[in-house]
Design a protein around this nucleic acid. Structure first.
Lengths: 242, 242
DNA sequence: ACGCTTGACATGTTTAAACAAGTTGATTAT
DNA sequence: ATAATCAACTTGTTTAAACATGTCAAGCGT
């Protein structure tokens, strides 16, 4: 579980950029200088730099250097799409307070309708969790999760109230790798209006539906998050990879 | 402009996966086999494989191999977030017919309000384009663009009706690199309802607002796309990078 | 028949080196 | 003074090799 060398360099540089040691517009030390500081080969430092490029932190320019283009997240409450980041991770990164209210946990068996919606096979045993997420004490996200029981075992109210991913990764040793998500705008349901306290003339939500896979390629989670549209949006930085 | 070796391998493998030569669930030939087929070093083929991983096409598993997890895009009309891909590029990739109706092109100067919204400085000369985009003959996207005149020069109705990016990259030789986008749900405006032919009880749109930068780090475009919420959603595949 | 070891093979990490190509500023020739 | 050239940087591409580590099935011993 120890970080590899390039991960250490990556995290170190990332932290320094976030701290403002390398402000927006400035250039990182050249690769040759970084090789000396970190005592490593060129490929190793290049790998860290490549990751920061795809994070939207750096813009490497041929012949010139790697320029910092990161800027701290703006005013409103928001978190980024573009990675698999749990809500608890995102809120910590943005210095927000996250509170979770578990509305219900029950064990169900996938029927036709659920199978169609989630992608699980009919007959599979699932754990169904409904949660309401508060950010800085405002109810902003209506969360609906289905977990494949054969993969994740029991999930207690305790776990659901903190971080399910923490539990899966650190307790169960699962490796979460890929996810496929769909982002859309939908009509608000009655429970959305009530739970998220939508204003009277707002009858829609910003929804993310997704399937999550572990390292064996098994889909073990279906997730549906319904966001308060006036208070949440998604940020995404992308680089063109030709 | 010629492709480098790893790009050729990347595109070749990608095409084969899309063609179904390597169906979902199957494994790619091992790195050592690919080295022979492509007559290259291990790092070169590894680079191509890494790109396909971050595209969500492959899932490399330590000790086992690289498994195909790509599946063709599903039923509804949709294109992916997570890259800088112009609409024309996305529709081609998904075998859709794109038609663009240019509603207006005018030259404006950024005032306070525009500056606040777009991020351009007050007083800068901008080209403002309003377009309606049809996919398979349905009006699905209300597009609003601001281009920095000093960077892009003149944009004719002709260009706006086909692909502005094509023009910028291939005619002007601009290099488009990073973009920062925000995805949100918003109230529909009157022009949205009319242009997109929203159903009566649907008064919201799925909006993407973004800023696009060139290789010098200059922001040269602000874009706002308002999508038909019942017919468009965004797909995103992500890998967890620890 | 069961569990264990082991060896072949897979991907992951790291180093090293060479060459290609873009950028920039100083030097040189006009 | 101006323009061309060059040298010293920068990042980009590619190869090669060594070692670490995960997977799996064949074969071994009990």
């Amino acid at each position: 579980m120890t970080d590899s060398k390039y991960e250490k360099i990556y995290k170190n540089l990332k932290a320094q950029i976030e701290n403002g040691k390398y402000p927006k517009g400035s250039f990182l030390p050249s690769e040759n200088q970084l090789i000396v500081s970190y005592d490593c080969a060129r490929n190793t430092v290049r790998r860290a730099i490549a990751m920061l490029n795809s994070d939207g932190y750096l813009l490497s320019q041929h012949g010139k250097g790697a320029q910092v283009i990161y800027e701290p997240h703006e005013t409103q409450s928001l978190f980024s799409v573009g990675g698999i980041e749990s809500l608890s991770e995102a809120t910590v990164r943005n210095n927000k307070k996250l509170k979770t209210k578990v509305l219900s946990i029950e064990e169900i068996t996938a029927d036709d309708e659920i199978s169609m919606m989630s992608g699980f096979n009919v007959g599979e045993k699932l754990i169904c969790i409904k949660r309401l997420r508060y950010i800085n004490n405002e109810p902003l996200i209506n969360d609906y999760n289905l977990f494949l029981k054969s993969e994740v075992g029991e999930i207690t109210k305790q776990i659901a109230a903190s971080s399910v991913y923490d539990y899966l990764e650190n307790e169960l040793g699962m490796v979460i790798t890929t996810s496929r998500r769909r982002v859309m705008a939908e009509h608000a349901r009655e429970e959305d209006k009530k739970n998220l306290r939508l204003s009277k003339n707002c009858d829609f939500v910003l929804t993310v539906k997704g399937q999550v896979f572990d390292s064996k390629g098994i889909m073990f989670e279906y997730t549906e998050s319904r966001h308060h549209p006036e208070k949440i949006c998604f940020i995404q930085t992308a680089i063109r990879n030709k």
